[in-house]
Design a protein around this nucleic acid. Structure first.
Length: 437
RNA sequence: GUGGAUGUAGCUCAGCUGGUAGAGCGCGGGAUUGUGGAUCCCGAUGUCGUGGGUUCAAAACCCACCAUCCACCCCA
């Protein structure tokens, strides 16, 4: 058979896996530093657990099948719904507020394209049990600090609130729920298809007058910030909208107090498709135009109703999700990916079979000292061994031959400069540490 | 799921209006049996995405299918 991967699924060779692994570690460290604890759930869930949580579109994208025992199951579509299930199921063992992080693959049967895969890694941090601006701000600060730790500088978080979207539409005279959703979907595309495009879509899909559609679009278009929303809300006495405004402002103030205010903007055109969001919602985009089409790299929101679907108790929750694969693809395109991670710095070369034992002993000693060491196993001419060491990208080659063995030394060659020195075995580890520093 | 583009060596691609394949890079060997990268020499690759059709003759033209990429929908 022809070796191949499934559409939308990928292999990771060491050149990309090494930086990927490093990014994962950086994210784990950052999440842990923000007081989140690790957790894991199964890749497979009962179909019923996942169905109906993401909207009609989401349901269609579930990988679903019958297992060997005839159970209807599905691969998880995100990490949020499994978390909600877990919290409800283990309610007795969990102390609220509950903070956890979860880094794991999810599966969506979408048509793959740039920055979109059928299997991809999500990195989530969530807080369950608190509904407050402080909790909202905490996950935003966690996400932004994590991006910073990854070396991502040009990222901006667009913040909105479900009740701003629905409240503004109410106030503008668009009160029918299904038409509101059509409007929100269209408004989400403002930066993509422009005001005229959005007006056209609303007129077509919601079957309303062009004048009303224009009025709505004008209210959502233009610069971000709190003022345009406040202007629409002013004097209308829409309680939910007024509350949402206060909430947004409080969250922004808190993020600013943490020193990350520059990276957050209130953007009333941001919508999120997933049905379970109830409060603030956000998307993070990279500001470099070269990777703008790659889409959102860090998103999330508040989902106060979701856990309650799995148990009797309503538990508030808010979370953020980093799309590591998109971020990786973007960093790769921008040339910001760490180089040289897929290389083993020290290459030990046994010159012939008679020094195999001493060479392995040397490698073992260095490895025990915490150095990363590859031992040449293919043998052959010394020139071949150097060639392999060079191709590997190793920094230092250690020559172990019978002469060196007899003299109690090792030839240490710097592969970049070509410079070579005899170093006594006793001083070798210190010497190597100095060279690699 | 809808629309568009593209499929030739491991990779990037060339191949004119049809005459059964090429380059660069990479890979293997050698020049150099205890010293890599540069240079030079030699070498191996391929059912030209798959299947059918038109033709004396198809990588090229036609049809179908598959795959990849892009856009839409939706999203990380």
């Amino acid at each position: 058979m022809i070796p191949q991967t499934l559409k939308g699924f990928r292999d990771f060779l060491p050149d990309t896996m090494a930086p990927r692994q490093q990014m994962i570690r950086t994210i784990e460290d950052a999440f842990a530093r923000h007081g989140f604890l690790p957790l894991q759930t199964p890749a497979l869930e009962y179909l019923e657990t996942l169905l109906g949580k993401y909207g009609a579109e989401g349901d269609k994208l579930l990988y679903r099948f019958e297992d060997n025992g005839g159970r209807s199951v599905a691969l998880r579509y995100d990490l949020t719904v499994p978390l909600a299930r877990l919290v409800a199921q283990h309610r007795a063992e969990i102390v609220l507020p509950f903070r956890r992080f979860h880094i794991a693959p999810v599966w969506r049967a979408e048509k793959p394209q740039r920055g979109r895969f059928r299997e991809f890694l999500q990195c989530d941090a969530d807080i369950c049990g608190v509904d407050s601006p402080m909790a909202d701000a905490e996950v935003l600060v966690t996400g932004l600090a994590t991006l910073r730790a990854l070396g991502v500088s040009g990222a901006r978080l667009h913040l909105n609130h479900r009740d701003v979207l629905f409240g503004m539409l109410d106030v503008l005279g668009m009160t029918e729920k299904t038409k509101q959703i059509i409007c929100i979907r269209a408004i989400d595309k403002l930066d993509k298809i422009g005001q005229d495009g959005v007006v056209a879509e609303i007129v077509r899909e919601a079957e309303i007058e062009a004048s009303q559609a224009s009025e709505i679009v004008r209210a959502f278009a233009g610069g971000g910030g709190i003022e345009p929303i406040a202007a629409v809300a002013a004097g209308k006495g829409h309680a939910a909208l007024d509350t949402a405004l206060l909430r947004l402002q409080a969250v922004v103030d808190l993020v600013a107090a943490a020193g990350l205010g520059e990276q957050v903007v209130i953007d009333r055109s941001i919508a999120r498709g997933l049905d379970y969001y109830t409060g603030i919602i956000y998307e993070t985009r990279l500001t470099d135009p070269k990777v703008a089409s790659i889409g959102a790299v860090m998103s999330g929101g508040r989902y106060d109703g979701l856990i309650g679907l799995f148990g009797k108790e309503q538990i508030a929750a808010v979370g953020i999700s980093i799309g590591l694969d998109r971020l990786l693809a973007a960093l790769q395109e921008l040339g910001l990916l760490a180089q040289g991670l897929a290389q083993v710095p020290i290459y030990v070369m046994p010159l012939d079979a008679s020094v195999a034992g001493p060479a392995l002993a040397l490698a073992t000693e260095l490895r025990a000292a915490g150095l990363r060491v590859e031992l040449d196993l293919a043998g052959g001419r010394i020139g071949k061994q150097f060639e392999r060491a060079g191709k590997r990208g190793s920094k230092i080659a250690l020559v172990v031959g019978s002469d060196e063995l007899a003299a109690g030394v090792v030839q240490v060659k710097d592969l970049a400069s070509g410079e070579q020195a005899k170093v006594a075995r006793a001083e070798l580890i210190d010497d190597l540490r100095r060279r690699l520093a």
